[in-house]
């Protein structure tokens, strides 16, 4: 049975709710409300202009017959599977490097590593369209230094998605900062104890660092998976930004949210687009549940033991 709250605790709880209020209002007005609305719309035939007409599960049935849904899911899954491990490994490497930098240089490097995250996504998309150009882009020019004839990253259907993955690795600042913060919280005495026991750098990393930052790793896996499945801005800017571009690259970059956007705002099938949104929500939900179930076996939580302080 839960203990009744003391007066001070009640007082603090009340203020906590007050400070949560702006977020709660935002949640209800800008997230929960639109979610309910989109679910209702997913059961209708709605073109944004006329009144929605009830269509039952028609939109969901139509998705099964729409080959572009499968194509968009395939493209998005391909990107996610490629992006996620690369993003994690590179972010962790960057965080480990940052963790070793001390003194005045530390602040400088932390800022520099985070700077790409401050660049607007649209600007990144345009920038990489030039960098990845198969004819004149810097990426292929760099590969050329090693005698490698680089692929057509932006126009060859087989290389478009790897190119997008390459672009996505530009923006790892947030993940790096989260992992860096976790690394800073690993108690130094654990490393000292490991060294006294004769553990080398790799063993210390594997047996001390990784378990101690596993909760942060788990968090960034979940967040990056969701972000990858919702990829839109950069891809849209690169391959769908204007009418001519929309069709010059084919559907090799047709990511799920791009297709959802096309259905909603180009073809005015907002009911269908809403159904697509709910399918994505279900996919993300299932993947997240699986990740949580699997992740809980490997994650070390530094929680308070039952009964009070440690």
């Amino acid at each position: 049975m839960a203990r009744p709250l003391s007066g001070l605790a009640r007082h603090e709880a009340r203020w906590a709710y007050v400070f949560l209020l702006p977020w709660l209002i935002g949640l209800v007005v800008f997230q929960a409300g639109p979610m309910v609305a989109s679910f209702v719309l997913s059961l209708t035939d709605y073109d944004l202009i006329s009144r929605p007409k009830f269509a039952g599960l028609g939109n969901y049935a139509a998705m099964l017959e729409d080959p572009k849904v499968g194509r968009a899911i395939g493209n998005t899954a391909f990107y996610t599977v490629l992006h996620l491990p690369l993003a994690l490994v590179i972010s962790l490497l960057l965080a480990l490097m940052l963790n070793r930098v001390t003194g005045r240089a530390a602040g400088f490097f932390r800022t520099v590593f985070y700077l790409p995250s401050m660049t607007p996504y649209v600007a990144v998309g345009v920038l990489f369209l030039f960098l990845l150009n198969g004819q004149a882009g810097l990426v292929n020019q760099f590969l050329g230094l090693f005698g490698v004839d680089g692929p057509q990253w932006t126009t060859d259907p087989a290389w478009v998605k790897p190119g997008i993955v390459l672009m996505s690795l530009w923006n790892l600042g947030s993940t790096t900062i989260i992992l860096f913060a976790a690394l800073r919280n690993v108690p130094h005495d654990l490393y000292e104890a490991a060294m006294i026991d004769g553990a080398g750098p790799w063993q210390r990393f594997r047996s001390v660092t990784l378990p101690m930052i596993s909760s942060a790793l788990f968090f960034v896996v979940i967040i990056n998976t969701i972000a990858a499945l919702q990829m839109f801005d950069q891809v849209y800017t690169m391959f769908f930004g204007n009418q001519t571009a929309q069709h010059s690259y084919g559907d090799s970059a047709l990511f799920y949210v791009v297709y959802l956007f096309q259905q909603g705002f180009q073809f005015l099938h907002m009911g269908y687009a809403s159904a697509l949104a709910w399918l994505l929500f279900a996919i993300i939900g299932i993947i997240t549940i699986v990740q949580v179930k699997v992740g809980n076996r490997f994650v070390y939580y530094e929680a308070e033991p039952p009964g009070g302080t440690r």
Binding site: L129, G134, Q135, Q152, T154
Partner: peptide
Amino acid sequence: GWTKLKAFTDT
């Protein structure tokens, strides 16, 4: 071929 030509025209 289109993939090379498209990359070229993009410049």
